[in-house]
Each structure stands twice: as structure tokens, then as C-alpha cells.
């Protein structure tokens, strides 16, 4: 094993500032992940050529791939950096912020657009209230199992980062919000808002903008069958369009 790990980080001092690259060397320890490498750099922020610098900023929280915070490009791949184990990565390890979101600083990005998208598709059950209204509807285990797959979406943004249709010139909503639309359209209570959700997908930016590159499903850290949701939602939308045409 090498004694040192070499890491190249694409840095940016703030929103709208020019990005630049810095290289760091960190002593190797067994079982390191990208976050523990960044923590080493943070505690001793000196570049490989011996210059003192500011510690890089990044987002993290759970470190076990359930919170979706620590998304970045690791050796060019959109993923969670906590589960990126050094022993499985080619060196130098290259770390970059996601390119499809505004950079706040260094590896930190602003993903608030993804949460706005969840508002647009009304990804919720319309409850009467939080008081005691008795049990919910029964659900068979197969339906539950299918919903569970989509309910694991962490809004981490990997699917958007990998998608060629998500770019500065396109309003495409992206696979994450499509998965949640499909999930709540299946919910026994959530179905009530199905028409409103499909309406949100009519026109530019909706599910119809998917270019079928299938990158989303390849990078999803939770293995969510996003392309299945895209296809199913496409069919729901077709029926909805026909229905609304005749009702007009």
C-alpha cells in the first residue's frame, strides 16, 4: 500500500468566483473514505508543495449514505463521498463539486432547486390533520415493497448531475422528482392529487423531457429504479392527456 494518498480538489472561494485546483497529500490509513481524507486535510491545510491554504469546505452529516449531504464528483463520478472508499479509488483522487448546481464554496453546492421541484409535483399525501383519525388504508406487501424503493430517495442530486438533459438550457425537472411523483401517485391517499401532479409534468421541464440516456439509474446510490418510474409516469401522462382532451 502507498504511504500517501494524493488528492486533487477543485476549489472555489465563493459563489461566482473563479475555480482553481489544489493538490494535497495525506498519510494513508486502512479503511479510509473520501470524507476521512478531507478531515485530515481540514486539520492540516497544507498543499502538496508545502503552501498553507484554507481548509476546503464540503457538506456532510450521517457518513453512512442515508442523508444525501456529501454528494460530489469523485474521479468524475457523481456519488456520495462517505461511501467512496480510498482502497477502491484510482489515484490521484480527483474531487469536484457537482456541475449542475450553483457552487457555494469548494465542494459545497446549492440543491434548493430540487426541494422546489418537490413542491411543484406536490409529493405528499393531503392529510385532514394530525389528530387521531384511525388507521390508514391496508396495503398489500408487494405494493409496499415497490413504494419503499422510491421512498429511499435522499434528494442527493446524483441523478441530476449525471443526466445530459439537465443543463443550463433546459428546464427538465430530473429523475428524483419524477420518482417522487410516481411514488405519491401510487399512495392510496396520495392518489387524490394525481391529476395535479400530472398537470405539473405537462409541457416543458416535465417527464416528457427525459432523453432516455438512463444515466440516472446507473449513478443512484440507492439503486432506485428511476427509469421504471419515468416510463410509468409517461404512461400515466399519456392517459391523462387523452382523458383531458375528451373532457375539454
Amino acid at each position: 500500500m502507498p504511504e500517501k494518498i494524493t488528492v486533487k480538489i477543485k476549489r472555489q472561494d465563493g459563489p461566482g468566483r473563479e475555480p482553481y485546483w489544489q493538490t494535497f497529500e495525506v498519510p494513508y490509513q486502512p479503511n479510509m473514505n473520501v470524507i476521512s481524507v478531507l478531515m485530515e486535510i481540514r486539520a492540516n491545510p497544507v498543499t502538496a508543495d508545502g503552501k498553507k491554504t484554507t481548509p476546503p469546505s464540503w457538506d456532510d452529516a450521517c457518513l453512512e449514505e442515508v442523508c444525501g449531504s456529501c454528494s460530489m464528483r469523485v474521479n468524475g463520478v457523481a456519488r456520495q463521498s462517505c461511501s467512496a472508499l480510498v482502497d477502491q479509488l484510482a489515484q490521484p483522487i480527483v474531487l469536484e463539486p457537482f456541475s449542475k448546481f450553483p457552487v457555494i464554496r469548494d465542494l459545497m453546492i446549492d440543491r434548493s432547486s430540487m426541494f422546489e421541484a418537490l413542491k411543484r409535483v406536490k409529493a405528499w399525501n393531503p392529510l385532514d390533520g394530525t389528530y387521531d383519525l384511525g388507521p390508514g388504508p391496508r396495503v398489500d406487501p408487494e405494493t409496499q415493497d415497490d413504494m419503499y424503493k422510491y421512498a429511499e430517495c435522499m434528494t442527493c442530486g446524483c441523478c441530476l448531475e449525471a443526466c445530459p438533459q439537465v443543463n443550463e438550457n433546459s428546464p427538465f425537472i430530473g429523475a428524483a422528482a419524477i420518482g417522487q411523483t410516481y411514488l405519491y401517485n401510487q399512495q392510496p391517499i396520495g392518489k387524490a392529487l394525481m391529476d395535479e401532479r400530472l398537470e405539473a409534468h405537462m409541457g416543458p421541464g416535465g417527464v416528457g423531457d427525459c432523453g432516455n440516456a438512463q444515466n440516472c439509474v446507473r449513478v443512484c446510490p440507492k439503486d432506485i429504479p428511476l427509469t421504471t418510474a419515468i416510463a410509468a409516469l409517461g404512461r400515466q401522462l399519456t392517459w391523462y392527456s387523452i382523458k383531458s382532451f375528451f373532457l375539454r
Binding site: 399525501n125 394530525t130 387521531d132 390508514g136 405519491y184 396520495g190
Partner: peptide, 9 residues
Amino acid sequence: DLLDRMGVP
């Protein structure tokens, strides 16, 4: 029951 109605799988 409340969580169930919210759609928790």
C-alpha cells in the same frame, strides 16, 4: 396511524 396516513411505507 398518523404516520401510516402520511404514507410511511
